[in-house]
Amino acid sequence: MTHSARLAKSCLAGWEIYIVTDSPSPGDWPEHSFDRVSSVPTLAERTAALTLLGYEAVDGAKWEWHELDDDETGPVRFLGVLDVRRIPSGDDR
């Protein structure tokens, strides 16, 4: 089963990565904060964060960037999206 990893810059905590799961409550989604507001986390940092959360990129998946604009005059925010799956445990291999 695949899920969507999202990389976003929150208003309060800075950059964070979270996994959109089947849970209807975003509060239940696994997440990791990078504890900084400047500089986008590197690919290596994002990969390490996903591993900490127990996920890995789906074969061939690449980060895609989406522009989020609330209106034509407001600031633009970017959202990184990557297809991921749970890292198989020893029993799943």
Rank of each mutant, 00 (worst) to 15 (best):
E64S: 10
D35W: 08
A13G: 03
A48P: 01
S39A: 13
W29D: 14
G80A: 05
M1H: 14
E56P: 00
P24D: 05
L12V: 04
A5M: 06
Y18F: 14
S25E: 09
L68C: 10
D71W: 10
G60Q: 06
S23T: 07
P24H: 07
A44W: 01
D71L: 01
G80N: 00
T2A: 03
S89T: 14
D70N: 08
C11Y: 04
L68S: 10
D91Q: 10
S4Y: 07
R46E: 09
W29V: 05
R46S: 11
D22R: 12
W65L: 08
R85Q: 09
P88S: 06
E31Q: 08
E72C: 06
E67V: 11
K62R: 15
T47E: 15
P30D: 09
V37R: 09
G74W: 02
R77C: 02
D91F: 04
T47Y: 01
I87G: 03
V84K: 00
V81D: 04
L52T: 12
G54K: 07
E56G: 01
E31I: 10
I17P: 00
V37H: 14
G14W: 01
I17H: 02
R93S: 08
S4I: 12
D70S: 05
A13C: 12
K9H: 10
P26D: 11
P88F: 07
G60L: 11
L12E: 07
G74E: 04
R77D: 13
K9V: 13
S10A: 15
T51Q: 15
S33R: 14
G27R: 09
L79W: 07
T51G: 12
S89V: 11
T21L: 04
S38A: 05
Y18T: 09
Y18W: 12
P30N: 13
E16R: 12
R93N: 07
G80T: 06
V58A: 10
V58H: 02
P26M: 04
D28A: 13
R93W: 13
S4R: 15
S33N: 13
A13M: 06
R85T: 12
G54L: 01
G90I: 02
Y18S: 12
E64H: 13
E16V: 01
L82V: 06
E64A: 13
T73N: 05
F78P: 00
G54W: 00
G54R: 02
G90Q: 06
D69Y: 04
T42H: 10
S39Y: 11
P41S: 12
T42G: 13
V37W: 02
